[in-house]
Amino acid sequence: MALVLDNLSKRFGGVVASENVNITVPKGKITGLIGPNGAGKTTIVNMITGMLAVSGGTIRVDDTDITRAPADQICRAGLARTFQNIRILPENSVLDNILIGFHRHERCSTLSALLGLPASRRETAAMRARAEALLERFGMRHLAEYPAGGLSYGHQRRVEMMRALASEPEYILLDEPIAGMNDVESDALAVLFRDLADSGIGILLIEHNLRFVTRLCEHIYVLDGGRLIAEGAPEAVLSDPAVLTAYVGGEHA
């Protein structure tokens, strides 16, 4: 049971953006994907999340093939994500931002939603309660009614995280989750990610920050020029000459 990329490739016309990438993200573990700027990380993310057509290879979530599935079905297969550049719903309150995360689990019929029947109202109330519980866990209960667009950067990141968790995913893809954060904030998130993995969620962590990745991940993949150049335990990977070459002049953090 894992999120598996099998021989994944992407070509734009004649240009190869990814070639034969094999990645396995097991449940309950944090798997890292690193690489210098322009290594092709974003292309991989876009293919997994259904934003970009796959040229070759397959992507599977457990036993479900999501290679050609549209973005919404990928979520339904149990894979949630956060975005590299924060994307919240700025007009909505923090609570409403999280409520939308429960969409995958809403069961009431379209008709009862249209007519405002008790089933729909009960469901909305239940989702609210769960959203409030999440807010409590993240220490943001007091901000529930604030418009999400006016929050600080760190809080917006957490709203995004809560929203992804609300969909109760089996796997979660974190696209540079600590970009722009200070050490205190990122340490707090590290603890949180550890907790998530311990609760059985498989995490694919795409990061720039090598220190952060080596501290958290059991297994790391290194991407350069669209190809995997190394994989394995953090210490082994970081002493790999190919990886050092790729990162020379890059941002050693």
């Binding site: 876009n46 259904g50 934003m51 970009l52 057509a53 796959v54 050609r68 549209p70 973005a71």
Partner: peptide
């Protein structure tokens, strides 16, 4: 235009 969410093209 790239990045369609209405199904992959």
């Amino acid at each position: 235009e790239a990045g369609s969410l209405r199904g992959r093209r």
